[in-house]
Design a protein around this nucleic acid. Structure first.
Lengths: 396, 396
DNA sequence: CTCGCTTTGTCCTCTGAGTGGAAGAAGTAG
DNA sequence: CTACTTCTTCCACTCAGAGGACAAAGCGAG
């Protein structure tokens, strides 16, 4: 099948495509209510979109009291690929043009093996999704990587946890391999976009999205747009000092938030506690599995283990302290907590909330929800699909 | 004289007005180089602006090799009033339409006397400027207040250091009294706009502007626009925890940055040191004046007093720590330090720089200038004039 | 001073985007 | 079946804006 080659010819068409993406099938009349164009103009633009094949007719809409309207929808054959590369695993998903996930695969992987090996695996996963009949090809792909990205070029810059990726032309390389447009961004930014599109952050203009996984990062959304900073490293809060003269961190400083709380730090602390005999629950799990991870701590906490709960609370306090500072500074309308560690659930959330509400001023916290992300691992891939669709659904 | 009543009729006219404001008198041809409009269209819009009286002809421009062009400039009689209300003093200035300061008065004052008393004083100062022949009236006024503002309405909300101002309709009241349009914003935001317009931050899209005065605040500029947060309290960094379990703060918490370093904290610490006999320099000044302020500390430091230098370094370290966190989070292209305490100069700046460059990651600090503001006390009033001119020079 | 060249300002025509009205098509309610 | 509503198409009209032609004004060389 021939893939999407057309692009909206003007801002009106781009606007219409986004409305159809976010609102699903719509009649011309409904579209007209949203775009402030005359009926004739609207009809012309819709006609042009139909000609390009980007949208198709889709039966009759329900009557609103008079003649029934013909529905319009995005071409049902359009497919986006969303790729979320984490430190230790990859998520790959296919979506339709409305960004609904049609298929989703997660596989363990180690970013440190370098871009070539990783992309081989990603391409194999994409091929598998294709083979299962979900897509005949991809019209665009969004890629999330766990480190700073020079956004316009789609190239990672000086990523601490993924040496070997520095300067690798991710966008260009994948665009070649996949044969479609590609956009690259930080994984945390994509999570923020995902939650904004389909999760808890719908209808919030300014918010923060804190992702606690192997490391810690923060997506910043200003006026509905992701803010990436001057060099693409905005939101890199893992190395904010949380504890003066605290633990040494891989970055060379002491007391970084990441050194005290993150998937990696939690696993290490839990192992230590188990070895010191502080927790039978954790010791048993250590013996059974040979190593501990954040998941084990979550399980132990769920079973009521005091040591595990303390670790989580302690970490939540640290994180909450840092977030409190960010809330004072940024005054967001919402804070979303997500990432692998969200399995720790409400114990973590409660600790964070306590710190933030205690340390920030009432004006900033008065009406500030602090919630867990509602999309879990699909936030990243939905955000990735959103990224590329935003790009494609903009004037050429 | 009749004051400016006209407003630009469309986005093109607004664009032209801003170009003339920022670039001074310009020929039609030069304007054409900057706006990407056909000569005919440009001529029409300029003609309309001339008709409204917002701009006037201003002699011939220098030849660029051919026929000489007629210059256009903003009406020379236009006057903006910039008001910067601080905790302990007010600045009032008149500018022309190009935002050049024509006259500037500073007077001591106490915000806690409440809005009515303060505005009486402000109006008297404005009248004095008018009486000195600098203006026959004002076409608009920008007001800065030392606390959070609900920006669209121009109303202070829950300002900690100015009780009695909460909810006072500053914009409406002053608009009545002055008989011209008024915009109100946080003083720190205005300082940022001032430095952006006429100071060190020209040509930087994303930057932070830290103002250390009686309190500490931070102006945030994203993509050239001031970011104010969901409730208008963005940049309120004075109450970020700088020292765990540190000094009690007026806000009820402990260890807030403001409790450890600010004009007020510095004065208190210096007084304490003088009383304990740690510094003869400071003790002498205390005896002479009866009280110490940041200015005394600056003077003592300039004279080489070790205690004063220590106080400044200590405060710079604290501030630098907090800024380091903000830099990691926000990844700005520039950090400007301003406010009353800038008299402390390079000792302070060096301490801040040391902390930031040590604690933030190289990607964020690699090309990050940290500099003192170059406008001093005029930054606020210029920012205020800029605020109202941005408002007036936008499509109606 | 005159001539050729360049830039600037004005005028005029042409195009294409977009509006709004009219009329027909296709429904619903009674 | 009738009256009314909503949706769609068609068409004439307006208007912003582009761009070319031409005149006006300045420069420098000879």
């Amino acid at each position: 099948m021939r893939r999407m080659t057309a692009r909206p010819g003007n801002a009106h068409q781009a606007r219409l495509l986004r409305l159809l993406r976010d609102g699903g099938p719509n009649s011309r009349a409904q579209l007209g209510d949203q775009v402030d164009l005359s009926r004739s103009k609207l009809a012309v633009e819709v006609e042009r979109l139909l000609e390009t094949g980007l949208v198709v007719a889709d039966g009759l809409a329900a009557s609103r009291g008079g003649r029934r309207s013909h529905n319009i929808r995005l071409a049902p054959a359009l497919r986006f690929l969303g790729v979320d590369i984490g430190a230790t695993s990859v998520d790959v998903a296919v979506t339709n043009a409305e960004l609904e996930v049609l298929g989703h695969i997660n596989q363990p992987m180690d970013v440190r093996e370098g871009p070539v090996a990783v992309f081989e695996q990603v391409l194999a996963m994409a091929a598998k999704l294709k083979a299962s009949g979900l897509a005949e090809g991809f019209d665009g792909a969004g890629i999330g990587v766990p480190g700073p990205v020079r956004f316009p070029e789609g190239v990672p810059v000086a990523p601490p946890i993924m040496p070997g990726w520095d300067g690798f032309p991710v966008r260009e390389a994948l665009s070649q391999d996949l044969g479609c447009p590609v956009m690259v961004d930080n994984d945390v930014n994509l999570m923020a976009m995902g939650e904004q599109h389909a999760g808890v952050a719908r209808s919030v203009g300014d918010f923060l999205c804190v992702k606690i996984g192997t490391g810690i990062g923060c997506g910043i959304v200003v006026g509905g747009e992701v803010y990436r900073g001057t060099t693409g490293s905005a939101g890199d809060i893992g190395h904010i000092q949380a504890v003066p003269d605290g633990r040494p961190c891989a970055c060379g400083n002491r007391g970084c938030l990441e050194a005290h709380f993150s998937g990696a730090a939690l696993a290490r602390d839990a192992t230590e506690a188990a070895q010191q005999g502080l927790s039978q629950e954790l010791a048993a799990r250590l013996e059974a599995a040979g190593a501990l991870s954040a998941v084990d701590v979550a399980a132990a906490a769920a079973a009521g283990d005091a040591t595990a709960l303390d670790l989580i609370r302690e970490g939540g306090n640290r994180t909450g302290q840092v977030i409190a500072g960010l809330v004072s500074f940024f005054n967001p309308g919402l804070v979303v907590i997500g990432g692998g560690v969200t399995g720790l659930g409400h114990t973590l959330l409660a600790a964070i909330r306590t710190q933030v509400y205690r340390q920030s001023l009432p004006l900033a916290t008065g009406n500030l929800p602090i919630v867990l992300g509602e999309l879990g691992p699909t936030a990243g891939v939905i955000g990735a699909a959103r990224l590329i669709s935003d790009h494609l659904f903009s004037p050429a």
